[in-house]
Design a protein around this nucleic acid. Structure first.
Length: 490
DNA sequence: TATATTTTGAG
DNA sequence: TCAAAATAT
């Protein structure tokens, strides 16, 4: 039996981390019924359910919601914005709109899952059809299991299993026309969500670097495939070479689906005889699987987010935070590769993955500061800060994670700098005060002869800091600290 | 996606 | 003598 659209009642599509029209399963399913569709985004003020967004992520969300609203308008629809608790707002909205159904794409944060499950049963009791979809992952956390029927704690076997069952299929097309409800409910204005920073100049570097929204995500993907993917495998670790996709914030907000990225990448690989391009595509896809692995861990291991996966790290003798921490945040540690990274983070809201590892190792091992402190800073400053990837990566660096680098893997910031930025191009981009130093001295200016420093206009302790710690002795202290917890069970 | 130190062995 | 390999953390 089919009724005409006008007699069918509305389906609410609740947008969360899926701010796109293309390949959006909840939206596609709703549009496919020919019913009126009511798209809604709710700024959730439930700190017990969701961690409040950091400053950079809020800036991004503002831009992304603006674009999503416009894209919906082009399809004859709108984005209704609400501010508050979804468990109160959605039942009320469903009543007012005389909706028959609520659809959404799933999320995987344990607290958010629980809240969504409670909301689902409440809405069902209200007589609504509630359906959830997979819009954010290639492999949902329960899709892969070890031979013993549990979840994976180690990346490689997880990735192997994921590749075996992975069948991304074709991305769903964006709906051209979305039926509007008879009446649009009141929502708030985007500016009422107060997502933009109060000091506008704070976001200058973000505006120059990024184009939030689905169109920006697609452009970034196209540019990646054409210009960066061919050299991805060989250049991905070099922060000056810009060979990485920089899709992370777009994936974080769901402006593009991992299925779209994965299948576009596969198409390039299948379309070529160039074995290095195929190798690059495979390597890049394995990085997408790290994202999947982080969500797998987040779902199955609640301590991922706030505790230590290896609980012996609860007793680790972390140092008190103080001036060294603020030097790290400001990019004034005296180690150029660390400082360049921390300034890239502050200026652009993003940091190259190699440099994330270097600054993370420096904070947790050279400064002996608890990884949670670094994770909080990243949460506030990264445009791609993500409930799964951010803590999983910090626990990996700190050595407290499920499949972590062993604690004794201490990065040497000078060796890393020389190896991955040999001619100092990356350093000079973010540390103009060192730009005139010759290549052989820019990685460790404290060792440069006085006349060379003078010629380059560098005065240590004034124009650029002396190192806040000596790496050699800091490394020994870190290994000694680790000895204190080493004997304990994981 | 580690590094420092020690050992080995060719020359 | 020194680079490569092995080893410890």
């Amino acid at each position: 039996m089919s009724a005409s659209p006008s007699t069918r009642s509305t389906i609410i599509v609740w947008f969360r981390d899926d701010l796109r029209l293309s390949d959006n399963p909840a939206l596609a399913e709703a549009v496919g019924t020919d019913c009126p569709v009511l798209p809604v985004f709710i700024q959730e003020t439930r700190p017990k359910t969701l961690r409040p967004l950091g400053g950079a992520a809020k800036w991004w969300l503002h831009g992304s919601l603006k674009k999503l609203g416009r894209d919906l308008e082009k399809a004859g629809s709108r984005l209704v914005l609400l501010d508050g608790d979804p468990s109160e707002l959605l039942p009320r909205l469903a009543d007012e709109a005389e909706a028959q159904a609520v659809y959404w794409n799933r999320r995987y944060h344990p607290k958010a899952c629980a809240a969504d499950a409670r909301l689902k049963s409440a809405l069902k009791e209200q007589g609504l059809d509630v359906q959830s979809f997979n819009g954010s992952l290639l492999v949902e956390p329960w899709d892969v299991q070890t031979g013993e029927g549990s979840f994976y704690r180690v990346y490689s076997p997880f990735a192997r299993a994921a590749r075996q069952i992975l069948d991304p299929g074709s991305p769903l097309p964006a709906p051209k026309k979305i039926n509007a409800p008879k009446h649009w409910p009141d929502g708030c204005a985007l500016d009422d969500l107060k997502l933009r920073p109060t000091k506008p100049d704070w976001a200058g570097g973000l505006r120059e670097t990024w184009a939030p929204g689905e169109a920006g995500a697609r452009e970034r993907l196209a540019a990646f495939l054409d210009e960066r993917l061919p050299r991805y495998k060989t250049h991905r670790d070099s922060p000056a070479d810009e060979a990485t996709s920089a899709l992370s914030p777009h994936l974080r907000f769901g402006e593009i689906s991992p299925r779209t990225v994965w299948s576009a990448c596969s198409a390039r690989a299948e379309d070529t005889d160039d074995s290095s391009l195929r190798g690059s595509a495979e390597k890049f896809q394995s990085e997408l699987l790290w994202r999947e692995f982080a969500y797998h861990l987040l779902y199955h291991l609640p301590p991922l987010e706030e505790g230590n996966v290896q609980s012996k790290f609860d007793d680790f003798p972390w140092a008190k935070t103080g001036t060294a921490l603020s030097a790290w945040k400001k990019g004034r540690t005296g180690y150029p590769i660390v400082d360049a990274g921390m300034r890239q983070l502050w200026q652009t809201g993003w940091l190259h993955n190699r440099v994330r590892m270097i600054v993370g190792s420096f904070l947790t091992k050279d400064l002996l500061i608890d990884w949670h402190v670094g994770e909080d800073w990243f949460w506030d400053t990264l445009v791609d800060a993500d409930a799964a990837n951010n803590p999983a990566s910090w626990q990996w660096v700190a050595g407290s994670g499920a499949d972590a680098a062993p604690y004794f893997r201490v990065f040497n910031p000078v060796l890393q700098s020389k190896k991955f930025d040999p001619d100092g191009t990356y350093l000079r981009t973010f540390l103009p005060e060192l730009a005139e130093l010759p290549d052989e001295h820019i990685h460790e200016p404290w060792k440069a002869p006085p006349d060379i420093l003078k010629a380059a206009g560098v005065t240590l302790g004034e124009t650029y800091p002396e190192p806040v710690v000596d790496h050699g002795s800091a490394r020994k202290k870190a290994l000694a600290a680790y000895e204190e917890i080493k004997g304990q069970a994981a």
